[in-house]
Computed example of a mutant assay.
Amino acid sequence: MKTLAKWYKWILLAVIFQFCGLLYVNNVFLNTNVTVSIKDANVSKEVMTGDLKVPGAAMNVSMSYNAEFSAYLLDGVLHIINVDSNDDKGVSGSGKDKITYFRWLPDRNMVIFSSNTRDGKKGTVQISTYEPDSDTLRDYPQIDGLTAESQIMDIELSQYTNVVYAKIKTSDSKSKIIRFNVMSQYAHVMNLGAEALIKECSFVNKLVYQNEGEAVYIYDGINKTKNKVPIDSDNVRVLDIDLNDVLYVGILDSSGNITKIYHQKIGDEKLTDEWTKVDLKTAISPKNIIISGNGNIYSNDTEENKIINLANNLKASYRGDFVEVLDGALVSKDENKVIITSLKEY
């Protein structure tokens, strides 16, 4: 009997421990009511303002998202300037491969760029990234088997999906769209015209594209499908996608100028015909419409050297040639001086 009683005690203790364990898992480990705080690893710094000197022959001058760094091309070399220290460094293009295209990511200090050869070999293009904060240079796998005259015309990189789309012009009338996945493996996606426009979303794996004079489409990189953007006009032009994945499309008049701007957020579902519409007081050339990362819509008056916020008609003047609008700053270039002016009121 004593032996049997001991066995009962051990069985009872085992059941108690098992019950307590299941209770912990259910109420603590699997609790769906726990509030989780997620912080963005990229803490945005306030945009720097002031003047910056660059060589007079510098081409394609542009700033990182917070104006901490500047980049430009000179004789095929990509230069990065630390605005605070004024340190100017040539990071790529000093050998056989001249850099022909670059752009900053819209929310971090990373520049993505390309050359139209690899070790001087034509028909091969190379895409790379450089992070000046850590002095880190990375190469994507080279794309080869192209025509000798092939060149990168645009690179779209989503900072959240890590998917890259590159537009490679292969002739005067054709271009290829190449996609790099998160493993840096590339594949051919589609063929478009040489003047086609492409814009990539940040949060969903979707690419907006438009052949010149044709309708606008969205390519779903997950389902490998495409859908026509529903809009009540046959004469349209893709303008941009902001950092919240809002698509902006301009309605064109017979002269090719924009008279209205439609915008709608791109998500997992298909777009609808429920657009937010902005009527312009005067028709504006597409090249003079600017969409900022936070969704402000500006027009650039090149005759009076002013940008105008189309929502509130506020104006800001600049010296020299317009370069770009950052979120909080207006950038222009006057001879060899880059001028960064605060736009906090916008």
Score class of each variant (00 low, 15 high):
N162C: 07
K167Q: 14
K167Y: 00
K169V: 07
S173F: 08
S173M: 04
S175E: 03
I177Y: 05
I178K: 13
R179S: 12
R179N: 10
F180P: 13
N181K: 09
V182K: 11
V182T: 13
Q185L: 13
Y186W: 14
A187P: 02
H188G: 13
H188Y: 14
V189H: 07
M190H: 05
M190E: 12
L192Y: 05
L192F: 02
L192T: 14
L192I: 08
G193L: 03
E195P: 01
E195Q: 10
E195I: 04
E195C: 00
I198A: 01
I198L: 07
I198Y: 00
S202N: 13
F203G: 09
F203H: 15
F203A: 14
V204G: 01
N205L: 03
K206C: 06
K206E: 04
Y209E: 03
Q210P: 06
N211R: 04
E214T: 12
A215F: 08
Y217N: 09
Y217M: 11
Y217H: 13
I218K: 06
D220S: 11
G221Q: 06
G221C: 06
K224I: 10
T225M: 12
T225A: 07
T225I: 11
T225G: 07
K228L: 14
P230K: 08
D232N: 14
S233E: 11
D234M: 09
V236E: 05
V238A: 04
V238Q: 02
L239A: 07
I241C: 05
I241W: 03
D242R: 01
L243M: 12
N244C: 02
D245N: 10
L247A: 03
V249S: 01
I251C: 03
L252G: 02
S254Y: 10
S255A: 15
N257H: 10
I261S: 05
I261E: 00
H263G: 00
H263V: 02
Q264Y: 01
K265V: 03
I266K: 02
I266A: 08
D268Y: 12
D268E: 13
K270I: 09
L271H: 06
T272I: 09
E274S: 15
W275C: 15
W275I: 15
T276K: 15
K277R: 11
V278M: 15
L280W: 02
L280P: 04
T282W: 01
T282S: 11
I284Y: 00
S285T: 10
K287I: 13
N288S: 12
I289F: 09
I289D: 03
I289A: 06
I290Q: 11
I291R: 03
S292M: 07
S292E: 01
G293I: 00
N294T: 05
